[in-house]
Write a protein that binds this DNA or RNA. Structure first.
Lengths: 243, 243
DNA sequence: CCCGGCAAGATTGTCGACAATAAGCGACCC
DNA sequence: GGGTCGCTTATTGTCGACAATCTTGCCGGG
């Protein structure tokens, strides 16, 4: 059920880049999995040329780890890295919220409020709203980032950080275990945007992300961040290719 | 640990990536220049395969703009983008300074202070300290970023943003026209780090970068602070380098 | 029994050639 | 005379093959 599937990027390299990124982010390829070029090439039905270009791009995005003459593996990242990312998100998305309070159009804000309404309905309908809320949360943040109208910031956040966030979420099953509260916080942020209160929007957004981070820290034990690299070699065989 | 960043990489693709990036950042290739693959391949003495991989990586770093089936050009970026970048630097390097105040070792801080001493001497020796101060400024910021001991932040700043900053500096000849003042601000930041005052370090760093941004804005006559998001792709006319 | 060197296998890195697409240009039609 | 269509050409995209390097298993020596 993919909406707007195709960036039908004209070139094969771009398409395999997108597909590979999706497979990594969605957890179809487990972190640490060794990716043989020949295998991937036959899997995606392309030659090794475009595949290597895609790999280099994913490597730039820190989704793949490559060692020259050895091979490429799906980036297996520690909990500490996730915490680092959340700290950065706090700074960057706080800034995005502040900018959004000024630069967002009325239509954009209205649409955002509508989105929150949908989330509330979904919340009312089912308790098992993990997946929807999870995606919805991303959607909410996406819109505010876009609302900053700062192209560089948008690229950095959406093109550079959010893929990692999504990968972590799937990996750790970091389902928002407090969707109720998160939704309330979203609502507050939206209210600040509606009243064009930039400072308040930034503060609330920073708080929101900070709480999410604390939640993760508490959920996964404590912050023994450094020595947490489980090097268990995952078997390369059972990689499912979800269409 | 390798200190020389030049061409330490074993593979041709990595080396041509580094060399191409250097040529772009240092202004050897003017923004807007169309890069033919065959020409570049012969210039760097490699085949088109590794070259294309390097191009894809530079494209990810926003140093190259590529249009499928059309070609690749050196990213020609507007002044507005530079302002955006400085806003982001303000948030990110402010955070870096705050973290550095806590996580930097005494040795690192001491070395930083020594570096500032060298800058002062250079400043005393010659008035035409543009180049040294320029590189020195980068060096100062580099060290504080590294001092944050936040790997993701370091990657994002040094690997993702600073190349653009350097490119802009060469392009606009944005030489620090107030090295005296900048050096003073650096000194203050270092003092805050010495006294482990995280909050102060962040505030001073944010101020420092904010002033640099204002300086650029004033220097280039673009007084419009709010509407810097000129979405219209203002082609920098004179760089039409077609053969 | 353990360690170091060596060879075989496999995988990655690189290259040259072929195919597909878009820009440039001229001729033809309105 | 202007506009549009089709062809030419150059450039990019893709592919298969060759070479370099790392890994792995084996053999011999200490």
């Amino acid at each position: 059920m993919e909406s707007t599937i195709s960036d039908d990027s004209r070139t094969l390299a771009d398409r395999v880049f997108t597909r590979l990124q999706d497979d990594i982010v969605r957890g179809a390829l487990l972190p640490g999995t060794k990716l043989g070029e020949a295998e991937l090439a036959s899997r995606y039905g392309v030659s090794r040329g475009p595949l290597r270009e895609a790999i280099r791009r994913l490597e730039s995005r820190k989704l793949l780890e490559r060692i020259p003459h050895v091979g490429t593996r799906v980036a297996s990242l520690s909990l500490g890295d996730l915490i680092e990312i959340y700290h950065i998100r706090e700074a960057l998305e706080g800034m995005a919220a502040r900018l959004a309070a000024t630069h967002m159009t009325d239509a954009e804000i209205h649409s955002l409020v509508e989105l929150l309404g949908q989330h509330e309905q979904q919340q009312d309908l089912r308790e098992d709203v993990a997946y929807f809320q999870r995606e919805g949360d991303l959607d909410f943040h996406y819109r505010i980032i876009q609302g900053s109208h700062n192209g560089t910031l948008i690229d950095m956040l959406i093109g550079g950080i959010y893929h990692m966030v999504r990968m972590y979420r799937y990996q750790f099953s970091t389902v928002a275990n407090r969707p109720q509260r998160a939704l309330q916080e979203h609502r507050r942020i939206a209210e600040a945007l509606e009243s064009r209160d930039a400072e308040m929007a930034e503060i609330l957004m920073r708080r929101h992300i900070s709480r999410a981070r604390q939640n993760i820290e508490a959920q996964h034990g404590l912050g023994a961040a450094d020595s947490f690299s489980s090097e268990t070699k995952q078997g390369p065989g059972p990689v499912e290719q979800s269409k």
